[in-house]
Computed example of a mutant assay.
Amino acid sequence: MGSDDAVRSPLPSLRARAATTAAGWRSGYWFVLALLVVTYGLCAIQDTSNPSPPAFLVQLVTVAVVLRVTRVHRRVQRVAWVILAVAGVAAIITTALGTEGQLLDVALSTASMVAFFIAPVAIIRHQVQRRGLDIEALLAATAAYVLVGMFFTLVYNLVALLTASPAFGDDVVDSLSSQLFFSFTTLTTTGYGNIVPVSAGVQAIAVAEAITGQLFLITAVARIMRGSRGPAYEPAAVPRAEEQS
């Protein structure tokens, strides 16, 4: 046999990679990220600490999509969807009736905080059993990271709703927009310094968020490095002398 027949072609590996990339985009994590962008925008335009019912509805849809994408057990999905549906209908009714008050704001903020705690946990649980670096792993890590930032944003929001004194001092408007900005600058340890927590409780939350952000990045990088090991395709087989004769 000739040497050309003994050399393995890299085309099967390239096709497998293309199929894996396509499967990653079909996984649904891109849709989760799109919903998170919408949620971020709705929160960023809030000039008060009062949660936005439209943003709350988008958050519920986001969690429902996460539970679907991460293939949570069907029974758990059904229970979660019933709870999310009830919360969504309640938010629509209160918005239509023009209901306002601190109790409603606290309820919306708490429900959103719990939802954004469940979502990244579900993503991490789904991805921890997978191996290999692909589009799905990158999209999932990004979505979970953003969800963690949104979770801490809602923690700051709930603290602001439950306490009388401003969380960031008198010079900063204690709004959902400023809470969102502070949360992500703390999560990424950017720390511009224009917004600083003044109470010991909020400072402790900020420290916990910074540590969480660093631990998340360390584990995400380790996950990526583990998945990127190995050759892009199997090395070509070198024909033996007797096979060439």
Rank of each mutant, 00 (worst) to 15 (best):
Q214S: 13
Q179M: 14
Q214K: 13
R71K: 13
D171V: 10
T70E: 10
Q46S: 14
I45S: 05
I118F: 15
Q127C: 05
R131W: 01
F168K: 06
S3P: 10
P10H: 01
R78L: 13
G24S: 08
P12R: 04
A237N: 04
L104C: 03
A23N: 10
V221S: 10
F152M: 11
A160E: 02
Q127E: 15
Q214Y: 15
D174E: 02
T94S: 15
Q129N: 04
A23P: 06
G191H: 07
F184M: 10
S52Y: 00
H73E: 13
I45E: 10
Y156L: 13
V114H: 04
G169H: 05
G41E: 08
D4Q: 15
M150K: 02
P239S: 08
L36S: 12
Y192T: 09
A19C: 05
I205W: 06
A241T: 04
V238Y: 03
R26W: 06
I195D: 08
G98R: 04
L84M: 12
F56A: 13
T219Q: 12
S183Y: 07
V38L: 14
V221W: 03
D47N: 14
V172T: 07
V79M: 05
C43A: 14
A232K: 04
V32H: 06
S27C: 03
A210N: 04
R240K: 14
F184G: 01
A160T: 05
S112Q: 00
A90L: 11
P120L: 09
R226L: 10
P51N: 02
L108V: 11
T142L: 12
F56T: 12
D170K: 12
S112C: 02
S178R: 09
A80V: 03
G193K: 11
V106D: 05
A87E: 14
T94I: 00
E242V: 08
D170Q: 13
Y192I: 05
V69N: 00
L161G: 06
V148Y: 13
G149Y: 13
P10L: 01
F56E: 05
V32P: 02
V114R: 04
T70L: 11
V79D: 00
V196M: 03
A241W: 02
S165C: 02
P235A: 11
A160Q: 03
L161W: 04
R17K: 14
T190K: 01
V146S: 05
L158C: 05
L108Y: 15
L187F: 14
A96N: 00
F31S: 15
